[in-house]
């Protein structure tokens, strides 16, 4: 058996560097470049990371769902690793959204939690993604991958319907205020940089998890190969 080419960490390290630099830049901009909001004050600054995290979460989870579908149609270890890494990264950003969301809500709406449609959707997605991830651990050898992939691919269209439903539902609450718009050029630039910073951070986590899964899969294949050799040898030894 020829060993597969080594998985070099070059790409990951480069991403890590870019993400670190961008996050520092974004923090600087949030602190010193963007003006405090005229109405909401300093708390509005959560917005930059909160919204960027929400977008990153949606991107990660929807690509995780799509990749799961691809893995279901044409199974491939690489796609499986990509899909799992995407969903797990999405989970991390869901937690970030659900942490920064209530902080924002407390100041702007006066309550830690409101059933604001987007927050509700994020909570539902967090619960769903956690359950789907948990199934893999509980399924007997190897079957969890297909089950999780099936549920993850179903989750995307359902998530859209949840979105529609909570939007209509939340629309009946008059307390949803429009606030925290970004008006000045300084705010806009800060938001763009924060967006890039969070995206590169997401890409870094995704790559990290993907590499880990690939290495795990390779280790397992190697272990299998050794196991096969051992079985063959013990049989040959047993006969002579």
């Amino acid at each position: 058996m020829t060993p597969p080419p080594p998985l070099r960490p070059t790409g990951f390290l480069a991403l890590l560097g870019v993400a670190t630099a961008l996050i520092c830049a974004a923090l600087y901009c949030v602190a010193f470049v963007a003006e405090p909001d005229a109405v909401l004050g300093i708390v509005q600054k959560i917005f930059y990371f909160h919204v960027a995290s929400a977008i990153a979460m949606m991107l990660c989870l929807s690509s995780g769902s799509l990749l799961s579908l691809v893995d279901l149609v044409a199974p491939s270890e690489r796609v499986d690793a990509l899909a799992r890494a995407a969903i797990e990264t999405g989970l991390i950003f869901a937690v970030m959204v659900l942490t920064s969301g209530p902080l924002w809500a407390r100041k702007s709406w006066g309550a830690w939690w409101t059933w604001e449609p987007r927050l509700t959707l994020t909570l539902m997605l967090l619960l769903l993604a956690t359950a789907v991830t948990g199934i893999r651990a509980m399924a007997p050898d190897g079957t969890g991958r297909k089950i999780a992939a099936a549920l993850a691919s179903l989750a995307a269209p359902v998530a859209y319907l949840i979105h529609v439903a909570v939007q209509k539902w939340g629309g009946t609450h008059p307390m949803v205020l429009k606030g925290g718009g970004i008006q000045s050029p300084g705010m806009q630039w800060t938001f763009r940089i924060a967006l890039l910073a969070i995206f590169s951070f997401a890409a870094t986590l995704w790559t990290l998890r993907y590499r880990q899964r690939r290495l795990e899969q390779r280790l397992l294949n190697l272990q299998l190969e050794i196991s096969a050799q051992t079985v063959r040898r013990s049989r040959d030894g047993g006969l002579t």
């Binding site: 619960l127 359950a131 439903a165």
Partner: peptide, 14 residues
Amino acid sequence: PLVLYPLLAPLLIA
């Protein structure tokens, strides 16, 4: 239920 209830959320809400 952990998997089913979030998936059924639109039906429940509606």
